[in-house]
């Protein structure tokens, strides 16, 4: 599992030359991985091209499961983060309990709960209250997987939001409120636009971690990249080639994501 950092730091700004160097290096790694995949499928199409063709729908599933979950995580995490900084005892309590519980339970256990235990609970409720729609409730694997990932990562994300919001000087809120804005207007127009710039690096980190952790949904009947890899291995008994290819495909996804995050960070700095 992962740990959530409470401190949010800016990426230290290196001199331009250093930045160009590091930029080249990371682009280079992505290019090497892509070239390696092309090399493998061209020179050893059996088994590598076969694996790729077999697993490509899994790549797509992994991609959209992650993106949909992450979008929901951004929204629910914001609500959770605002709850965590709320002075209202009840709201703050609910948000805190949510974060503490989710942080303390492994993601895999949570996913299994949502897929196996949650539908069973609904069915029991349906039986007890005589609601046929509940009694015959069947879980959609993808839906439950997205729900599970979102529920877990939104808790981490609310801590990221909280740290970001708390890093903005108090005077900003005071200035906004003294101009007559209400709390939510001040948050929306003044605090969040600044906090988002601060939390971009950890948010990008969350996205990449979520992308990797999405492989856990393979145990709850979602045919993602990892599950497709397992299916291929079970049918063909070539574990080394299978998992090399799967690992390379994950690497392409995470390296692209890292480049996108890097680009966003560069284009959100304040003008001086």
């Amino acid at each position: 599992m992962k740990k959530t950092s409470n401190s949010v730091r800016h990426i230290s700004s290196n001199p331009l030359v250093d930045r160009l160097k590091s930029l080249d290096r990371w682009w280079l790694l992505l290019i090497i991985v892509v070239v390696l995949i092309i090399f493998l499928i061209s020179f050893k199409p059996d088994p590598y091209l076969r694996i790729l063709l077999f697993a490509r729908d899994g790549v797509w599933v992994t991609f959209y499961t992650t993106v949909i979950s992450f979008f929901l995580v951004l929204v629910i995490g914001l609500i959770g983060g605002l709850g965590r900084i709320s002075h209202n005892r009840l709201i703050n309590g609910i948000a805190s309990i949510y974060v503490e519980i989710v942080r303390g339970v492994p993601l895999l256990v949570q996913l299994i709960f949502w897929y196996f235990a949650f539908p069973s609970l609904i069915q029991n409720l349906g039986d007890a209250w005589n609601v046929p729609a509940f009694s015959t409730y069947k879980a959609n694997p993808l839906l439950m997987a997205i729900l599970g990932l979102t529920f877990c990562y939104a808790a981490y994300m609310s801590e990221v939001y909280r740290a970001g919001i708390e890093s903005i000087p108090k005077g900003q809120m005071e200035a906004a409120r003294s101009l007559g804005m209400n709390y939510f207007q001040a948050m929306w127009y003044i605090i969040l636009p600044q906090a988002v710039r601060v939390i971009l690096p950890p948010v990008g980190n969350e996205f990449i971690t979520l992308l990797k952790d999405s492989s856990l949904v393979s145990v709850v009947a979602v045919a993602d990249l990892t599950r497709r890899g397992r299916e291929f291995m079970a049918a063909n008994f070539i574990p080394v080639q299978t998992w090399v290819m799967v690992a390379l495909l994950y690497l392409v996804l995470t390296l692209i994501a890292a480049r996108v995050v890097n680009w966003l960070e560069k284009h959100s700095r304040y003008e001086r």
Binding site: P169, G171, Q172, E174, A175, A176, I190, P193, Q194, R197, Y270
Partner: peptide, 8 residues
């Protein structure tokens, strides 16, 4: 005292 302009 610290101006508190909105830097963004």
């Amino acid at each position: 005292q610290q101006f508190n302009l909105f830097p963004h």
